[in-house]
Amino acid sequence: MDSQVQPKETASLASWNQNAKEVTAGAAGGVAQVLIDLVKVRLQTQGGGQAWSTAKSIWVKEGPWAFYKGSLLPLLGVGACVSIQFGAFHSFRELLESYNRGITPGVDPTLSLRQFYLAGGAAGVVNSVVSGPVEHVRIRLQTQPHGAARIYNGSWDCTRKLTRAAGLTGVYRGQVVTLLREFHGYGVWFAAYEGFLGMAMHHQQKAREELPNWQIAICGGLAGEALWLLSHPLDVIKSKMQSDGFGSDQRYRNMRHAFRDTWVTGGCRALFHGLGPALLRALPVSAGTFATVEAVRKLLG
């Protein structure tokens, strides 16, 4: 009896340890994502414009500290979010590998790019539970009036006022479009990373562990560019909904209304406002995240 149970317990412990490593690696990678994207959000919610002129205007009118608006909550939450992303991704990856073993026993269970997309998308859905309210509060702080006219005195005051205005629904404003962005965005992110990594391994005939850090960083950076290029319109609508007013001041009834209004007033171009700053930020952030995650994986064995 003991000899039959022990292998299962050992496998379960190994899986738990691997999940713990993925969560730890993700948290370390999340530190690299604490970059301020105030310019991107302003361009998305205020009808576009030029990134440089917007940044200059913020500096002149609101001072350098304005670029750190809404940074406290993301600083606290980013490690948790990236931990969730990588931990959940590993769990869904294991499920799909198990499925592959059952369908074709004895064959390499490595996921296809489509399956990597599904695992990444599922991880994004899990992550949206945390990322939705965290990003909502950040956007409120980044788009509120400057100086004496400001509405919120920090992240916790913002959260309290959102709850008072519309309850838990108010905190999770724009959650449907957030969920869609997280599923598609992180599906693309993980699939693109694994795809670029696979190309590098095949071209050089090297194992994953043998690839130099700079190549891992490049693969991660390109994956970040793919994420934003293919999910930016959803992010624009999310920002619009999460900066919208409440009650009589509410402009968008739902996600569909926000899409239609954005298209009518600005066309396809309006769905890509703020893309420049997003791409500029994505390359180093995503490169640093994946490079850090892979380094921590190697360190943890």
Rank of each mutant, 00 (worst) to 15 (best):
M255C: 12
L113A: 07
G30R: 02
F67Q: 07
A200G: 13
V296T: 11
S98K: 09
G121Y: 04
S3A: 06
N213S: 08
L141F: 07
G198V: 05
L96C: 04
Y152M: 01
G198A: 04
S71M: 05
K8Q: 11
A200K: 14
V296N: 10
A88W: 13
E22S: 15
A148E: 11
P64M: 08
T262S: 12
A166T: 06
M201N: 13
W52H: 01
A295Q: 09
K206L: 15
L75T: 07
K8F: 15
F290K: 03
L283T: 14
V296S: 10
L230G: 05
G198W: 11
P7E: 09
P7N: 06
T110W: 12
L141N: 04
Q115H: 08
Y186C: 03
Q142W: 01
Q142S: 05
G124Y: 11
F86Q: 05
H136I: 13
T24K: 10
Y252M: 10
Q215E: 08
Q4T: 05
L35R: 00
G276K: 02
E225Y: 02
R164C: 10
L299E: 12
G266R: 00
R114Y: 14
I103R: 12
S83M: 08
F190A: 07
R208G: 06
V129C: 05
C219I: 14
L72A: 00
R297E: 11
D244H: 07
Y117P: 01
Q250N: 10
G124A: 09
S12T: 06
N254R: 12
A122N: 02
A258E: 05
L141R: 07
V293L: 13
V82R: 02
R140M: 13
G224D: 02
A32D: 00
S98V: 04
L211D: 09
N17E: 14
L96I: 11
A66E: 11
L179H: 14
R256Q: 12
A122I: 05
C268N: 05
P212D: 10
L230Y: 08
V177L: 14
V137G: 04
A191T: 04
T178H: 14
R42Y: 01
W16S: 15
V41P: 01
R269A: 10
P133S: 06
A148R: 11
T110F: 13
R160L: 01
L197D: 03
G198C: 05
G63I: 03
R114K: 07
L111M: 10
V82E: 09
L168R: 11
G70I: 03
H273F: 08
I84L: 14
R256E: 13
E225K: 00
M201A: 13
A123N: 03
S98H: 10
E182A: 10
C268D: 09
L211Y: 07
Q175G: 03
L299V: 13
T169V: 09
V137S: 07
A119G: 02
G185R: 04
K161F: 09
E22H: 15
Q115E: 09
L229S: 01
F67R: 06
S71N: 00
T24S: 12
P277S: 01
E210P: 12
T110L: 15
F246Q: 00
G274I: 01
T24H: 08
T169W: 15
D37E: 02
G77N: 03
F272I: 02
A166H: 10
G187P: 04
A55D: 02
L299C: 12
G174Q: 09
G267M: 07
V60I: 15
I58N: 06
P212W: 14
L222P: 13
Y252D: 09
A14I: 13
Y252R: 03
Q18F: 12
A295M: 11
L222R: 04
